[in-house]
Amino acid sequence: MTATPVTIPLSASDAPATSYQPPLRARLSRLVLPVYTALAVAYLFLPIAVMIAFSFNNPRGRQNITWQGFTLHNYIDVWSRPDITNPMLQSLIVAVVSTILATILGTLIGLALTRYRFVGRNTTNILIFLPMATPEIIMGASLLSLWVSLGISRSLLTIIIAHVMFNISYVVVTVRARLQGFDRGLEEAAMDLGADEWTTFRKVTFPLIFPGILAAALLAFALSIDDYVITSFVAGKTITFPLWVYGVSRLGVPPEVNVLGTLIFVVAFLAIAAQVIWQRRQARRQLVPSRAP
């Protein structure tokens, strides 16, 4: 698998590397980074491996911390445990909705901050920064007092509002890292070629900043699906997955929780695999005509 940069089509970075054989030392040194990254990814996945292993455990007590035998029962039982699956559903709803909203709102702010000079830019910068610097409990408690003073009862909606709020800043900062030093020449070239602003955005700007938006959305999703402190204050009667797991950890986390974690993991993994295959096909299809004389 040679490295072919996706977004900068003019580059031919690895062409020389493949056309001649570098000395052994150089070839080995090229392996250092991939091996290092593989190790780092393995480190990230170590606890996940433990989680998956214990989803097959057959604990007889309340606690699921010592290996007591292999079973597949947990994978059947989990579907008859609405007390576990409902919170997961709530969490997924909150995470998806709040990620979409926060990504849109945050990207817009990121665009405004990096592409325009305007009065109030510094204030906005500080406004973006503050939610990240606020201890979660202070944020949770302050939002709770807002709802109480307005007499609004807490629900799924108030959770989503809170999650969008704390996610916006993370999206802005991530997207901004992409936009900074953005080559405006590409946009100008598109405009010179007769594209209007919207077309330029669609065909040039958006594809270029998309990796940033994707990264921001991933971050927002991860933050949202695992938030405990703020959610606990604004949740009312809605139970999200982290709330349930935290509470049940008093008595022992049942293996069905590991099963759900494993399933989410597997689904995401399969989605990734499907995307890889699809991309390969696309690439092959594109290769054929381009080779034709």
Binding site: S13, M51, F54, L218, V253, V257, F265, A268, I272
Partner: peptide, 29 residues
């Protein structure tokens, strides 16, 4: 720089462990 076509996928791999509940990850650690 070396991710090639699977960049986005590698990126997703980095974040994937964090879709799992914090408690479960920490208990595992």
């Amino acid at each position: 720089f070396r991710g090639g076509r699977v960049k986005n996928i590698l990126l997703l791999l980095v974040i994937l462990p964090f879709f799992t509940s914090f408690i479960i990850r920490t208990l595992a650690w």
